[in-house]
């Protein structure tokens, strides 16, 4: 009997480079208030959002992804031709098929890489990191490009006063590859399909096709807030525990930028030490789902608050419900 040869990767993988893309157009709360009965003060107290970015026509899912990916590749110093797989987390590439990942692979210079999209909503970037980590360690790809990208403005009802001010657009990317030490901690992830309806499109594309409706994203705020603030704090704590990183050793806490109030509640529940810098990119960027974590890390790096070698606790959580958390070391 002929044995099948086994494939082996490297013992450890890490994040080698990061990049992001913020759409040009800044949308202040004043513009949101043209369509909903609310106030700047209400929006800021309930969400912490002062402004967000919405993509213009030319800032497509492809364009934003490629910009973020090129920046991440440059940051990593890895030749794009070495990328073995492109994983794209998005819920706003409005084609069922083909995946946007294949076109991104071509544009970034990895034209024959394996490529696919992941639908894990706001947990998507951390799902992508988990897959990338396992691929590199398992040997199915030496380098992986993990992207989170959204144009949530395309599926946001401008007149829905509970969501219109929250959702926004952007892209972030990470290059994952071999590392001398573990650079991505064990993932703590899961889902809760019993709560699938609390963040969901109103109807399927098929149901919407014959009507004047558009299947915008809806959210039932209080149950989501409760789940995210408390259940997710436990998941974040587990990610620290399995990584063997005590909170005292942590440099950064970068939760999915869902709502400043969720971030604050999680920080309280986690009892993070004062020195841990908490990402608050939502103030200027809104909630960009799968893109929010890499965008927030980029902002911290640009402002000098995050530096190479820092340990960051990242956690994504959202529609599904889905969640994933890891400790990562910044490149």
């Amino acid at each position: 009997m002929t044995a099948i040869a086994a494939q082996t990767g490297t013992p450890y993988a890490g994040v080698l480079g990061l990049g992001s893309y913020r759409p040009r157009r800044v949308v202040p709360n004043a513009e949101i208030l043209e369509h909903i009965d609310s106030s700047d003060e209400w929006i800021q107290t309930r969400s912490g959002i002062k402004e967000r970015r919405w993509a213009s026509d030319d800032e497509t899912i492809l364009m934003m992804s490629v910009q973020a990916a090129k920046e991440a590749l440059q940051d990593s110093g890895i030749d794009p031709a070495q990328i073995g797989c492109v994983v794209v987390s998005t819920v706003t590439h409005l084609y069922q098929t083909p995946a946007i990942a294949t076109q991104i692979a071509v544009e970034v210079g990895a034209p024959t890489a394996a490529a696919f999209d992941v639908s894990a909503a706001c947990a998507g970037f951390c799902y992508g990191l988990a897959l990338a980590n396992d691929m590199v360690r398992g040997g199915s790809a030496k380098y992986v490009l993990a992207i989170g990208v959204e144009r949530l403005s395309d599926i946001t009802d401008r007149t829905d006063r509970s969501t219109a001010f929250i959702f926004a657009d952007g892209a972030g990317a990470a290059v994952v590859g071999p590392s001398d030490e573990p650079g991505i901690g064990p993932v703590v992830w899961g889902s809760d399909g019993t709560q699938h309806a609390v963040i969901s499109q109103k109807e399927s594309w098929q149901e919407a096709a014959g009507s004047q409706n558009w299947p915008n994203l809806t959210m039932d705020g209080n149950p989501v807030f409760r789940w995210a603030s408390f259940e997710m704090a436990k998941v974040a704590q587990q990610a620290l525990d399995v990584a063997g990183v005590p909170a005292e050793e942590l440099d950064l806490f970068v939760p999915h930028q869902a709502n400043m109030r969720i971030t604050d509640a999680m920080r309280r529940a986690l009892k993070l030490p004062e020195h841990v810098i908490v990402a608050r990119d939502i103030e200027r960027q809104g909630n960009t789902s799968a893109a929010s974590i890499p965008l927030a890390i980029s902002a911290l790096r640009e402002s000098g608050q995050a530096k190479s070698g820092d340990l960051a606790l990242v956690i994504g959580f959202g529609a599904g419900l889905t969640y994933a958390a890891q400790v990562i070391r910044l490149p």
């Binding site: 107290t45 309930r46 705020g221 209080n222 807030f225 409760r226 603030s229 408390f230 109030r261 509640a265």
Partner: peptide, 11 residues
Amino acid sequence: VDSLSMVEVVV
């Protein structure tokens, strides 16, 4: 105490 803080108080 707004609705989100009320959720926190309840928990």
